[in-house]
Amino acid sequence: MMKEDNIIVCRCEDVTLKDIRELIKRGYTNIEEIKRITRCGMGPCQGKNCGQIILREISMITGIPVEKLTLQRYRPPFGGIKFSEVLGENNDEK
């Protein structure tokens, strides 16, 4: 048996495959729900690493084909921007 708690689905928020599988089994079968509860996809990468793995897990457990599932919506500003940069105050380390 795989050690699911040693398999990292989301590096940003340290979420394991075990966490994801338990949630899906508890009835959270929409990636947006899983995002809100586990924070998967709320980290700096916005779900680039975890998104597809979670979809596959949802599909495996619920039997719904992956094509029928949707990924989470991305939100700006991508990659992050400092407040000072928004304001045009260049007091950067650069």
Partner: peptide, 12 residues
């Protein structure tokens, strides 16, 4: 793109 290498650089 990922978050694996985040560090504090010159206080940031």
């Amino acid at each position: 793109h990922c978050s694996s290498c985040l560090m504090t650089v010159n206080g940031v």
